[in-house]
Amino acid sequence: MKNLHDVKLSMLDLVAVREGGTVAEALAISLRTAQHVEALGFTRYWLAEHHNMPGIASSATAVLVGYIAGGTKHMRVGSGGVMLPNHAPLVVAEAFGTLAELYPNRIDLGLGRAPGTDQLTMRALRRDRVETEADFPRDVAELQQLLGTPQAGQRVVAMPGAGTGVPIWLLGSSLFSARLAAERGLPYAFASHFAPAQLLQAIAVYRSQFRPSPSLAEPYVIIGVPLIAAPTDEEAEFLASSTYQRVLGILRGDRRCLPPPVADFLAQLAPQERRAIDDFLGAAVIGGPEAVRAGLTGLLQATQADELMLVCDIFDADLRLSSLDIAAAVCAG
């Protein structure tokens, strides 16, 4: 059984624009956060692709990966993930191949099969292309080929990209990507930070069906963990109200910028709204140091994950860094 000393810590950032703030400020906060967690010893820092969503500034994911990699020294930086239905594989290979040449052995390419947006915006991204279930596995295979060593007679070569071997990760919130990652022998990241319902089932499928590959000999699992840590449970619950408000907005179809915290926010909601937020944040760890220790330990015992990828959306940027300090100290001590 793993304990917290054995697990790696990483970070997933949606680059939240705060209420009353600007995109430029959100980008600066992300870089500052990345530099901070690199100093704490975090393994990687991923950016998530979303489009046409007020309050989220991570649409140009490859650009942000370069921004964060350029402002850090050794931590891995990547996408968590690039939503492959929105992009031609060749364009992705060239972008991440370029990043790999600029920042050798530091770039990750996490891939998702959801559009990461609404249908209208998806059509704006890929025009009239109609996505089928067979497209994602085929596009993943094409990316693997484009980032690998060119074969004799290969007529389309990613330049840059070919021969870089940028590590590909499959992301998912259901069993589809778990099966595909197992079949291809790729590392797997489960999106339990917003859709934890099938977490244990997906990990079990991935591990039981895993086939070793040239890139990965044994299964490797990352799980997403919403984290709000503070000196006391009460303060953490207060800070978490920003996330509760955001989740409620998502559930209501009313997306906005990250709001400031509100006292006793959950008490103001109807029971069904509280249950919906609880379901969305089923893998969340919220509280003071001891509650954080218990929460992370429980997740680790249940999943035996190799890596915990924290999602920490706190309105006050300084308190966000303090929250990550607490998580790092808990895992180190």
Score class of each variant (00 low, 15 high):
Pro271Leu: 02
Ile228Asn: 10
Leu120Met: 10
Asp325Trp: 02
Pro89Ser: 11
Ile203Asp: 00
Ala134Ser: 13
Glu94Tyr: 04
Leu47Ile: 15
Ser59Glu: 11
Leu31Cys: 12
Ser173Gly: 15
Ala24Pro: 02
Pro231Arg: 02
Pro212Arg: 03
Ala202Ile: 04
Ser173Val: 05
Pro214Met: 12
Gly165Thr: 02
Cys312Gln: 10
Val82Phe: 06
Val23Thr: 15
Arg126Cys: 13
Ile56Cys: 08
Asp264Ser: 07
Ser58Asp: 06
Arg127Cys: 06
Glu49Asn: 09
Pro187Trp: 09
Ala124Asp: 06
Arg32Leu: 12
Val311Trp: 08
Gly81Tyr: 02
Met53Asp: 06
Ser59Met: 12
Leu199Val: 01
Gly249Cys: 10
Ala283Gly: 04
Ala263Thr: 12
Gly112Gln: 10
Pro271Ala: 09
Gly41Asp: 12
Gly161Pro: 06
Ala267Gly: 15
Leu321Gln: 13
Leu216Pro: 01
Asp118Met: 01
Ala69Cys: 03
Ala236Arg: 06
Ala191Gly: 15
Ala62Gln: 10
Thr72Gln: 00
Leu296Phe: 08
Met309Ala: 15
Ile222Gly: 05
Ile228Tyr: 05
Gly282His: 03
Ile168Thr: 06
Leu9Asn: 01
Asp264Glu: 14
Ala195His: 12
Ser192Lys: 02
Gln198Lys: 15
Ala236Glu: 01
Gln151Arg: 13
Ser242Thr: 14
Glu237Lys: 12
Leu146Ala: 09
Gly71Phe: 01
Tyr67Pro: 00
Lys73Ile: 00
Glu25Arg: 11
Gln301Lys: 15
Arg18Val: 10
Ser173Gln: 07
Glu235Phe: 01
Leu299Gln: 06
Ala217Val: 03
Val311Arg: 07
Asp233Gln: 06
Thr121Lys: 09
Gly55Asp: 07
Gly70Arg: 01
Glu19Lys: 12
